[in-house]
């Protein structure tokens, strides 16, 4: 074949690259030891899933920061949604979901049926999901906090998106929600519209309070934003165990969630010190809100936010490492 002469150049380039690749495998002069010290056993890689809300990020980074600074773990954060995170426990991609909201369906599938995951106890956080209105509305229309009166105010919540119905603003499509079924089963003249993310929800509530605009939407605690704007929860028909069994027929409020930690079975069995850390990790809603606020409102890097909180709360951290 009539090859042209650029061959040698290319070969040389490849050879140099390959050589470097090999050279790269030898040691380096940069300090190889991990920062920090501490834990006796080898920790190795520790994969934490990051679900898309700030509270979660706060918990994950605090645990991750402690694991890397105290236990010498090689911590990796993986940005995935809940479902994908659970899946990932099957092939060593994910070690822990640090804040799980219920998800009985996933628990059945991955804990009971497949056995690739297991529970690792409560985070100490109590999770509340519900419909909220900005404080000015609760003041102006005191009876709005009872769901039975919602239809009366539906007109007020009309937007170009919801047409002739009232708009009920929801968050990220991956969030646990029964809202469409609730609207239907409670005969409410509302239309669910998705804001798309936690940040968008917060933005909307902040604006509504500032401009005294009507807004009703899905929200949850623990949540740092409650300190900035104390949203008021609307009472839905009270939760009774089992009333949310069929997602199409739900007509009751969300349960109070005991937020828990889920770990991969392999990780639990590995003897990694990080597993003990995860198991012992517990803090309060206020703790989480502090870190979440550092991240979301103050714009701190999550790792720095975690560091700041850890520095200030050594006693709590020590308890997790006992």
């Amino acid at each position: 074949m009539g090859r042209h002469r650029s061959g040698p150049v290319r070969l040389a380039a490849l050879a140099v690259l390959a050589g470097l690749a090999l050279a790269g495998c030898g040691g380096g002069d940069i300090e190889s030891a991990p920062t920090g010290g501490g834990g006796g056993e080898e920790c190795g890689e520790f994969d934490i899933a990051i679900n898309p809300w700030v509270g979660y990020e706060a918990s994950a980074h605090v645990v991750g920061y402690v694991a890397s600074s105290r236990l010498g773990c090689d911590v990796e954060y993986k940005n995935v949604k809940e479902e994908v995170a659970w899946q990932g426990m099957g092939n060593d991609e994910i070690d822990v979901v640090i804040e799980n909201w219920g998800h009985d369906d996933l628990k059945k599938k991955y804990i009971e049926d497949q056995g690739i995951a297991q529970e690792a106890g409560s985070t100490g956080n109590v999770g509340i999901i519900g419909w909220y209105v900005p404080p000015w509305m609760a003041e102006e229309y005191p009876d709005i906090t009872d769901w039975k009166n919602l239809n009366k105010y539906a007109d007020m919540f009309q937007t170009s998106e919801s047409g002739d119905k009232g708009q009920l603003l929801d968050g990220d499509p991956s969030f646990v929600t029964n809202d469409e079924a609730l609207v239907k089963n409670l005969d409410l003249n509302y239309e669910v519209v998705y804001a798309g993310s936690e940040a968008a929800l917060i933005q909307a509530f902040r604006q509504a309070e500032a401009n005294k605009e009507p807004l009703i939407g899905y929200f949850y605690e623990p949540q740092w934003f409650m300190a900035e704007v104390p949203l008021v929860k609307v009472d839905l028909p009270p939760y009774k165990p089992g009333c949310d069994a069929d997602p199409e027929k739900v007509a009751c409020d969300y349960p109070e969630y005991d937020l828990d930690k889920i770990v991969a079975t392999d990780f639990a069995k590995s003897g990694s010190p990080a597993y003990d850390l995860v198991k012992n990790f517990q803090w309060t809603n206020d703790d989480q809100n502090v870190v979440a606020k550092y991240i979301a409102a103050d714009g701190m890097d999550p790792e720095e936010a975690a560091e700041k909180w850890v520095e200030a709360n050594q006693d709590k951290v020590d308890a997790w490492l006992k």
Binding site: E82, E83, K109, P173
Partner: peptide
């Protein structure tokens, strides 16, 4: 998007 996010 929702299908990607929620198992059911």
């Amino acid at each position: 998007v929702a299908g990607f996010s929620q198992a059911q």
